[in-house]
Amino acid sequence: MKRRRRTPILAPPFLLVVFVALVLGCARAPDRDTGGERNLEVAHGYIDAMNRGDASELDADGFKAMHAMVLAAFTNLTITADDMIASGDEVVTRWTLRGKQEGPFQGIAPTGEEWEQADIMGLMRQLGAPEGPDGAT
C-alpha cells in the first residue's frame, strides 16, 4: 500500500447513499450548483454538517454513531463530493474523506500520521492493521 505525500487525510471508506424525498428524473451536481434540486441540496447539507464536525445534525442513529466515532479519531476532516447523482428518491455521492488520526480508532492508537487512501481496507492497513495474506483482493 503505497503512501502518498501531501495533505492530511484519512480514507474515503465507501460510497455514500443518502435516501431522501422523491423526485422525478435525475440530476448531477458534482459542484455545488444543484440547480435548486432539493435532494442534492439535502445531500450537500449532509456533507457540510460532517465538515463542520457536527454529527448531531444527522438523523439516523447508526450514521450518527459511526460519524461520531470517526470525528473523535480524526482531525482536520474534510469530505469532498467528487460526484453527486440524484435519481428518484436516492442520491449517490462519490466522495473522498481526508483527515489526520489523532485519537484511537478501532483499537488502533493514534499514529499522527497523514495518509491518503480510498477505502476502509486501505485505511486499516495505513493505520497498521494486518493485511490480507498477500494483500491480494
Binding site: 503512501r3 488502533i108 500520521e113 477505502d119 494486518p130 490480507g132
Partner: peptide, 26 residues
Amino acid sequence: QLDLLGMWRQLGAAEPAGGRPAGKRD
C-alpha cells in the same frame, strides 16, 4: 468501492487492529 475488509474478515484474515501496536507502514 467494495467491502474488502468484510471479505477478509469473513475469510478469517485481517482482523482489525484490536491491541496490535500502532505503527506506520511504509
